[in-house]
Design a protein around this nucleic acid. Structure first.
Lengths: 113, 113
DNA sequence: CAAGTATATTCGACTATTGTAATATTCATC
DNA sequence: GATGAATATTACAATAGTCGAATATACTTG
């Protein structure tokens, strides 16, 4: 397979590879929301959310329309929602091991020694 | 939703967010292969492939069994193959825009000025 | 047990991603 | 056109991911 295709896919996964961006997409999956609404629901810094939105925009995962002062974001292709749902299924299938994985991730420094 | 769940998902996407690792998973999707076979098919440095395999192992996306001298890798859960197939569908749906995106990615330095 | 083969790990340099703070832009209203 | 609200961008420090080179480990066979 062409390597640029793989780079393309990797790039999209990269865009998904952040908890905040996953949260944004999950918040958007029922329908569009303004940037302000996202910031409020996420309870995070305005600049930070805006940067994550910029990443999602750059990779074309969301589209946005401007209405007066506000910018409304929505998921560009419902396939992404399917992907997130599959990941949810994956998580449930591996719940047990996942939990111990999360444990290790919580306290990586102590367990080294 | 719990934030650690999102961190978990993000972590898995992170593991998928590299062309080489996608290539590995695509090579493994028909069935298991030895590390050596992967190295040969990828035509890459042994150490590099081994490092990417370590990432996939750490995130539990692959499992491995040792047979004598060799280590055979396989995809841990077929859901991952579904995810990759969905991404393929996504790619085809967005082929046109994707191509121009790839173009920009190819020559980012020249187009700045 | 010496030598060879298959795989993994460690190290250091390099590049990319992230968050915060500060600043800029855009639009609406007075 | 000045002011305020909503959003975006820039700059910088900190952290994380990547690669190649060298080294380590584990197993096999003579």
């Amino acid at each position: 397979m062409h390597d640029s295709l793989r780079r393309f896919k990797a790039d999209i996964f990269q865009a998904l590879a952040h908890p905040t961006r996953i949260a944004i997409l999950e918040l958007l999956s029922p329908g569009e929301l303004s940037a302000g609404a996202l910031i409020e629901k996420l309870d995070m810094e305005q600049a930070n959310v805006s940067q994550h939105l910029a990443v999602l925009r750059a990779k074309q995962l969301v589209s946005n329309r401007k209405v007066g002062n506000q910018v409304f974001y929505s998921i560009r292709d419902p396939i992404l929602i399917d992907v997130l749902n599959l990941m949810r299924a994956y998580f449930h299938a591996h719940l047990k091991e996942s939990l111990s994985m999360l444990d290790e991730m919580e306290k990586p420094l102590e367990t080294v020694r």
